[in-house]
């Protein structure tokens, strides 16, 4: 059995890179060890750090004791790091570890819809930590994590695009394994409401209809026309209730008369100037 927690005089790095060792940099806040370690694991980039104070406030953990085993030991583990002298076997450590992950995830679901949590997620959003929308007309809109359920074990985390209002699979297989409940169903809506003035996009109305030698394929063109009719009905409805939707936040990229804004003209140029749509980041 490999000894996991040697006492080194020097700060110890996670040499093998698999994140299974605590970094004991003696000077820093000992209390945040477990969380720092957890956030440093590859694939956990979507999580923000939850304040220890929030975790220690029993009120915030209401109802979670039915979800997590050995609750108080697990809380100790997350907030103190497990005492290095404390003798436990690998099996028990793994068990505690799994429960700690789950507890942290469920607390995270609640935390990211508090003011502090929302602000932390806002920074991550601006930093595109949740990735970009790959839909061409969304022009690399930053995404937000979303859970399809608030219960653990139902589905993995997905990504929400505020521009096309659609839900996408994470690109990386590591992210595709994270439980969606750790982000929850409410987060993106709450996030957009909180930061509406800053983050609500203008929605693109451009769309693609498959063509053969320049001619639209009928089935698609017909559906697209019907969909456009639905959009126009909504525009009318909103305008009649006094909501301006012409090229404003949470409106459409249309002119005041309702006609679509012309998409930017693409000039032909050298191959090096080819629009690759991701070079603009």
């Amino acid at each position: 059995m490999a000894p996991e927690h040697h006492q080194f005089a020097q700060p110890q790095q996670d040499v093998d890179g698999d994140g299974d060792e605590y970094i004991s940099d003696s000077g820093s806040d000992f209390n945040e060890q477990w969380i720092d370690w957890f956030l440093g694991i590859k694939g956990n980039e979507y999580f923000c750090d939850v304040d220890v104070d929030y975790i220690l406030d029993k009120f915030n953990l209401t109802g979670l004791n039915t979800e997590v085993e050995k609750m108080s030991k697990v809380i100790d583990m997350i907030t103190d790091g497990l005492d290095e002298e404390y003798e436990i076997g690998d099996k028990e450590r793994d068990h505690l570890e799994a429960n700690a992950n789950k507890l942290y995830g469920l607390i995270h679901q609640r935390y990211i819809i508090t003011t502090k949590g929302l602000n932390k997620m806002h920074l991550k959003y601006k930093n595109a930590d949740f990735g970009y929308c790959y839909r061409v007309y969304c022009e690399l809109q930053h995404l937000l994590p979303i859970g399809l359920s608030d219960h653990v074990g139902v589905s993995t985390v997905k990504l929400y695009c505020p521009k096309c209002e659609d839900i996408y699979n994470p690109k990386s297989s590591r992210h595709a394994q994270i439980d969606g409940a750790y982000f929850g169903t409410t987060f993106p809506g709450m996030f957009l409401q909180t930061f509406a003035a800053e983050v609500m996009p203008v929605h693109p109305v451009e769309r693609y209809i498959p063509k053969i030698f320049g001619f639209n394929i009928h089935q698609y063109a017909k559906l697209a026309r019907w969909q456009e009719l639905q959009r126009n009905k909504q525009i009318k409805r909103l305008t009649e209730s006094g909501i301006n939707v012409a090229n404003v936040m949470n409106g459409y990229n249309i002119n005041p008369d309702g006609s679509p804004l012309k998409p930017p003209v693409v000039s032909s140029g050298s191959r090096s100037r080819m629009r690759s749509s991701r070079s603009d980041k």
Binding site: E165, D166, T185, P188, Q193, Q230, Q234, N250
Partner: peptide, 24 residues
């Protein structure tokens, strides 16, 4: 795709974050 919800409730169309892209 499913509608965006806050605590299980659908967001009203007239809200400043109300849905605009359902047609698509």
């Amino acid at each position: 795709s499913d509608d965006l919800k806050i605590f299980g409730f659908k967001i009203h169309e007239g809200s400043n974050v109300g849905s605009r892209m359902k047609w698509l």
